[in-house]
Design a protein around this nucleic acid. Structure first.
Lengths: 242, 242
DNA sequence: CGAGGGTTTGATGATAGTCAAAGTGAGTGG
DNA sequence: CCACTCACTTTGACTATCATCAAACCCTCG
């Protein structure tokens, strides 16, 4: 039983922008199916020209790049609503790999329909550009923390950002969100070693700022955590959903 | 004497994709003027909603973000042909600042015309998305080197990338390109201290791989430099010009 | 109960940051 | 034309953050 766009659970959330009836229909026509995968399953591979694009519907995952020497850089976490494969759709080649961390389900779109979809609605074309620009914005922020913040600030920054995103998606319940990643994932996201990441997390715990335990993340003092990160808190605005 | 798009010196270069007559005219209509600035002039500021977008026509500059504590992350260098202000155009707010390093001239576009421009030509809309996706791709690469490579590899990677870009633009003459930046700029781009950057550059020089001197960059052994960077060399493909 | 994946902790060392000062060269003013 | 300044680069000495190595611990699972 494939979810119809009309009854898409994500679309109802206030975090996602409303669509006109027309946009909804066009999106529905674009959607070619659904994909459900187990934890650890690779969805897209760096350097390949995937025949399909996806929108994460349920579950969490991550984007990453690997260097020839084997080291891995996690580019971003994947949350419900994320559009995946834009680079393949536009450039013909992915710049990073994508894999599922939890069990996940995706809406599937055919790359061969992508250009039509883009052409048939200026609004949707604009939405896609919006998503690309937002991702660019975010990557600039990430680059800045990896380049300029020390381990403690970097982790604080990452936890705040992640928590805010989850909150906007309604995934936070009494100060706690599901966080199914490994410490190694966070280490690879921030350019830190696993050991150092672990010790730095312990410092945040000791300071009563945030606790990441048992696949859940709890933030005790958001303001202080943001202060440690040397970042400004800003409210999130609705984003388009493809 | 404003340069007409028909006689744009960039458009003639093979590095930029051809435009149809129609696209050319639409672009010409979009263009509202030209801007010429001295070295050090700020063009766009992070967090602001600039009323104008730009395409770099001549000269070099850089994009950067600053943290509250004053540290700076250079996001990318700006070369002729680069489209600037997409984030302001699409998101309504820049995620980074832009400033001129050399004397520069820009084509100027009004943000108020941006949406019309986007709507009036699917091809141009797609080009804009292409640029955003390409920037995202590049930022992923950058994040990976800042996060995973050590200082020597990171610098080697940066020099190779920069040199390739300049080469594609025809800025390389007998193995040498103009490189008007300061060591501090490179340090801020790679998350290194100025001193360490300086010493690492000296190592590359001693190894006869690359020399950056007197505002010019010369690469002596591209293959070996790429090997130090642990990267794969790939040829550059033409990109759209706005 | 043993195995394996992930987390935690301690010890040691290297890469990179900080501090300080000297060197270099272009530009300016007497 | 010669100081003098200023911005940038270079070098040396010292420090610290973070990586590496190694081992123990904790859970879940078969």
């Amino acid at each position: 039983m494939v979810t119809a766009c009309t009854s898409c659970p994500l679309r109802k959330q206030s975090f996602f922008q409303d669509m006109t009836q027309d946009e909804l229909e066009k999106t529905q026509r674009f959607k070619s199916g659904e994909l459900s995968v187990d934890p650890g399953t690779p969805i897209l591979m760096e350097g390949t020209n995937a025949p399909q694009l996806y929108t994460a519907l349920r579950g969490m995952g991550l984007r990453y790049k690997t260097l020839p020497d084997g080291s891995r850089q996690v580019i971003n976490l994947i949350f419900p609503g994320d559009f995946i494969g834009l680079q393949a759709g536009v450039l013909g080649e992915m710049g990073h790999s994508v894999e599922a961390t939890t069990h996940m389900t995706f809406c599937v779109f055919d790359r061969s329909d992508f250009f039509d979809f883009f052409r048939n609605s200026t609004a949707r074309a604009f939405d896609i550009t919006w998503l690309a620009a937002t991702e660019e914005h975010f990557l600039g922020d990430t680059l800045t923390t990896v380049g300029q913040r020390d381990a403690l600030s970097a982790l604080a920054w990452a936890l705040v950002r992640i928590f805010q995103r989850a909150d906007a998606l309604g995934m936070v319940q009494n100060g706690t969100m599901p966080f199914p990643y490994k410490q190694q994932d966070m280490a690879d996201a921030l350019g830190l070693s696993l050991v150092h990441t672990n010790k730095t997390l312990a410092r945040l715990r000791d300071r009563q700022l945030a606790v990441w335990d048992d696949k859940t993340l709890k933030i005790h003092d958001m303001a202080e955590l943001a202060a440690v990160a040397d970042m400004e808190l800003e409210e999130t605005s609705p984003r388009p959903l493809i």
